[in-house]
Write a protein that binds this DNA or RNA. Structure first.
Lengths: 133, 133
DNA sequence: GATATTGTATCGATACACCAACACACAGGA
DNA sequence: TCCTGTGTGTTGGTGTATCGATACAATATC
């Protein structure tokens, strides 16, 4: 069961959110060569999204060379995955952290208040995760 | 001169990015009642975006009661500016925090490591801020 | 071969961003 | 008083992207 979280309200297209998250799973080795991805219908149902949206994400990932598909069989991680380095991970996350911090600051949340919020969200995420496993 | 930054690549619709940032400017008092917003064409040129995109953002903000428009005159911040309640702020930030956490988790960062990163970024932001003031 | 499972193709509704032409408000001169 | 120019927001139309619904085609399994 992949841990993927899609937001309907943040404006980023669903297929793009999905594509990015799968990319990260591959990049960090949580999905490795020859691992099987869920069938489009299954993942679609899990994410409460149209199968075509998953198809779109899979297609983009295939074009990027990260996965390959075999009709009737399934979708698999290809061997050529090029995981991000630790440094790249930090850079990616730092960008997100920065936009969170800027927005928090604009809304009157200081650092400690923001950190507390992140902690709360983390607990909430864990709770959801447990419930679904 | 409003300093607003739109990203063409993060997937969020331009009008929505614009709308959110103006909302924040109002929420934090950088724009206050009766302040005049730039004409749609001017802001559009500044942001290198179509005037209609600004129109869209202004329209949404007007429907939210945050600004009002006078044809031939301009666009102004309305007096009733109550952009966000404390609850709404939390909800907004919680969404950002969630996407950060999901991405962090996917990239192999646990909670504590993520919090440490956020702290670092905050320090870095402060340093930049000092430099530019 | 028959059937289930998987990905694929096509179409429609809606949203986004752009472009061009329009309509209103105001100021200043005839 | 009228006209006209400039500045403002407004309206309608086009192309592309997103997302969904449905029917299709290839492969695996028995």
């Amino acid at each position: 069961m992949l841990h993927i979280n899609l937001s309907q309200s943040d404006g980023v297209p669903l297929y793009l959110q999905l594509e990015r998250q799968i990319k990260q799973l591959i990049a960090t080795g949580r999905l490795t060569a020859e691992d099987e991805l869920p069938p489009v219908r299954v993942l679609a149902q899990q994410l409460v999204v149209n199968p075509q949206t998953v198809v779109r994400a899979y297609r983009e990932l295939e074009m990027a060379g990260l996965i390959y598909k075999r009709r009737g069989a399934g979708t698999y991680v290809s061997a050529e995955g090029t995981p991000y380095t630790e440094t790249e991970c930090r850079r990616l996350l730092a960008e997100r952290a920065n936009s969170l911090l800027v927005e928090a600051r604009n809304l009157g949340f200081d650092l400690e208040k923001t950190l507390a919020l992140v902690r709360e969200c983390s607990i909430e995420l864990d709770r959801q995760k447990e419930g679904s496993e």
